[in-house]
Design a protein around this nucleic acid. Structure first.
Length: 302
DNA sequence: ACGTAGACTCGCTAGTAGAA
DNA sequence: TTCTACTAGCGAGTCTACGT
């Protein structure tokens, strides 16, 4: 098994350009509320087809690799964060990012054991081979955009030892434009990476996108949520899963509530915990996102 | 290597609404 | 009332990712 920690003596800063640490995590807005990713841990091969109002999107999986999952999307989150941070610091944003996988795994709060490197490569393959077509942000003459979540990825290994020296990923122009546009990204809670369930991850992103910092929060009917999720489960089974998460009520920053509206439809309310009364058991003090003003050196952990 | 968590599938049952 | 179609709820089981 090749050694996975980066060599300390011959570290090449020019090659590993993107290396910020302890910065707020950014998520691209358009990918937050719609079914762009599989929510299941089991490989998904059925396409996602979402048509609501004037908005449509289609996601299709490659039969060899399966569809990119909401856990694979952590890599895109990391990329959004790096690009946004670079631009905020007056550096040019670039669609291609160079990094050491150990650094990436640490940033998205994963373990760095051997099998996590194997899973990282599998995730990169799913992202590279999952095809997306959508009319979101397809303005002007273009009627839709068609792309893969990663345009390409590469791995550089030492010829003699087989050690991983670094990786590159290139994100598609659609995603890059979404990141660099004004208001294109939202800061998300660092504990998002610790959410283990696909539906709960997706629910958090929906809450973050819609409820945001609004006092009254946001609400959706169960049916609307189901349509937005792209889940392949039956509606009734999806509803059971959502009710269980409302019962647990463990999402970072947002508290979930269920009630019925005048039409007797089940409605889920998302309320920001910091907007609740201080005596509410679900209240949580507003946290300030981490930010350092100087670029952090890459920290390799033995 | 093993146990656990979670999304999903599937079969069964029950309730409801509409038509005959 | 009976039949049919549809939907929801529940539980068992499958499969994979993940943690120890």
């Amino acid at each position: 098994m090749p050694r996975r920690l980066p060599p300390k003596g011959d570290f090449q800063p020019d090659f590993f350009a993107a290396s910020f640490a302890d910065i707020p995590i950014r998520d691209q807005r358009d990918t937050m509320e719609r079914p762009f990713f599989s929510l299941a841990k089991k490989p998904r091969f059925d396409p996602i087809e979402y048509h609501v109002g004037d908005v449509w999107l289609e996601v299709s999986a490659n039969p060899m690799f399966g569809m990119a999952t909401i856990w694979d999307a952590d890599i895109l989150l990391w990329a959004s964060t790096q690009i946004t941070e670079a631009i905020d610091r007056g550096m040019p944003g670039n669609r291609t990012l160079k990094f050491h996988p150990h650094n990436l795994l640490k940033s998205i709060r994963r373990e760095t054991g051997g099998d996590h490197y194997v899973r990282l490569r599998a995730a990169l393959e799913r992202l590279t081979h999952t095809a997306v077509r959508t009319n979101i942000r397809a303005n002007g003459k273009k009627k839709f955009a068609s792309f893969h979540w990663l345009e390409s990825w590469t791995e550089v290994t030492d010829e003699t030892t087989g050690e991983t020296q670094g990786m590159t990923i290139t994100i598609p122009d659609w995603l890059f434009q979404g990141i660099v546009m004004k208001g294109g990204v939202l800061t998300i809670h660092e504990d998002y990476f610790l959410l283990t369930g696909g539906i709960e991850r997706w629910l958090y992103r929906v809450a973050r996108k819609h409820a945001g910092h609004q006092e009254i929060g946001w609400q959706f009917t169960m049916r609307q949520l189901y349509e937005k999720s792209g889940s392949t489960a039956r509606f009734s089974d999806f509803a059971i899963d959502v009710r269980r998460l409302v019962e647990l009520n463990q999402l970072p920053e947002y508290s979930l509530y269920l009630h019925r509206n005048e039409q007797e439809e089940e409605v889920i309310n998302f309320l920001r915990r910091s907007q609740l009364g201080v005596d509410d058991p679900n209240y949580q003090f507003e946290r300030n996102p981490k930010r350092r003003l100087t670029p952090a050196a890459v920290r390799w952990i033995d």
